[in-house]
Design a protein around this nucleic acid. Structure first.
Lengths: 214, 214
DNA sequence: CCTACCGATCGGTAGG
DNA sequence: CCTACCGATCGGTAGG
């Protein structure tokens, strides 16, 4: 009789989900296996049946997050390198990724703080390539005169990621302003520091176009 | 005979210094009292002679950092509200504070992630007032037409702090670019997204002034 | 996936 | 500021 070896409930997935939440909220060192076990509703040793160690669990959580990021990467790259050059599209893609689950931003920021060496390696694998691609797009825009020439393309891209990730990671501890207001300003911030204002008439330079919110 | 009760070495200060370093680098939960004791060169119970608990030590470390910040606050506020309106001065003051000791940025960011509730309270006490002051200055600049009218003053100030703190906190884990390049771009970023370019001739709008680097 | 257990380390105390 | 020690909790294992 071909009985399925694993029980109907996907415990493994629940372990990963709760671990992500707890690592993002309280940090890796601030989260015990006991905490995770209680959140999932199993006993502590059961976790170590699914994952060889607490650290292996941490790696898997991080890997899954970065894998999802790699899923949206092609779409982002396409938008960045397309002739139409939808810069706002790239920006929005990034913001959406972290905004739809702020734990991604918190997890990322914590890992960067806790394990700078390891994260540099991962950054090289997951973001370096498309930092370069977006930077290339920016350089072309600078040549065409649409973008500020004194912007540092690579540094600009890195600091924009920095701004988006940390603004979302710290969203409910920073000030009294609404999430929408802060996010809107982050988008304007990123856009306005890159694009030169569009002139229409020979007179006064114009205000930059407000962000196309849906 | 009036012998001084405390030994010549200021152990207490060394405890605070090493705690700051370790909390900033490995986090509060990632740092044990044993770690601190070894870094200072004393035995573990000696720490608890100077500070009632590990948490009290954490609070003191944070308080000292914020107190130093409060020392530079008046200078920052003066620059912000002066008629001359040295915006770059405020920016530079902020950057210098964190740049001369990146552990301040790391400590702050970790606390914001670890204790969002408590940090909101502290933010209200230490930064809210001058976020308002700088925002007022920005509003005046907007009325005069020197600054972009679509900028959200309060959100702008908050996100600028966000950008500065996190770019410095994550400086050696983010990419291959030099600290100088990243910091320079952060300053340009903040400036360019707020100031409208200065027109000089009736023709083409000009590049914004490069930052006055000393 | 559980019960039962392990040595190591945690923050903290007694007592000097 | 130290030695000696505490109960609690840590990540992890044995064995089923």
């Amino acid at each position: 009789m071909a009985t399925v070896p694993s029980p109907p409930t996907d415990v493994r997935e629940r372990i990963l989900r709760e671990s992500t939440r707890l690592f993002a909220t309280k940090g890796f060192d601030g989260t015990s296996l006991q905490d995770i076990a209680e959140a999932v509703g199993v006993r502590k040793p059961s976790l170590l049946y699914h994952f060889p160690s607490k650290d292996a669990l941490r790696q898997k959580v991080l890997e899954l997050m970065l894998a999802r990021w790699n899923d949206v990467l092609p779409r982002v790259l396409l938008a960045a390198t397309s002739s139409q050059g939808q810069f706002d599209g790239v920006l929005r893609e990034m913001v959406t990724f972290f905004d739809e689950d702020p734990d991604r931003a918190r997890l990322l920021l914590r890992e960067v703080l806790d394990r700078p060496r390891e994260m540099r390696t991962l950054m090289d694998r997951y973001v370096k390539q498309w930092v370069g691609a977006v930077a290339e797009y920016i350089k072309k825009g600078q040549e065409r005169g649409r973008l500020w020439r004194d912007a540092d393309p690579e540094a600009y891209v890195i600091q924009t990621i920095n701004l988006i990730v940390s603004s979302i990671a710290t969203r409910d501890s920073l000030g009294t302003l609404s999430t929408e207001r802060n996010l809107r300003e982050v988008l304007r911030y990123a856009r306005s520091s890159l694009f030169r204002p569009v002139r229409r008439s020979p007179g006064e330079p114009e205000e930059p176009k407000p962000l196309a919110e849906e």
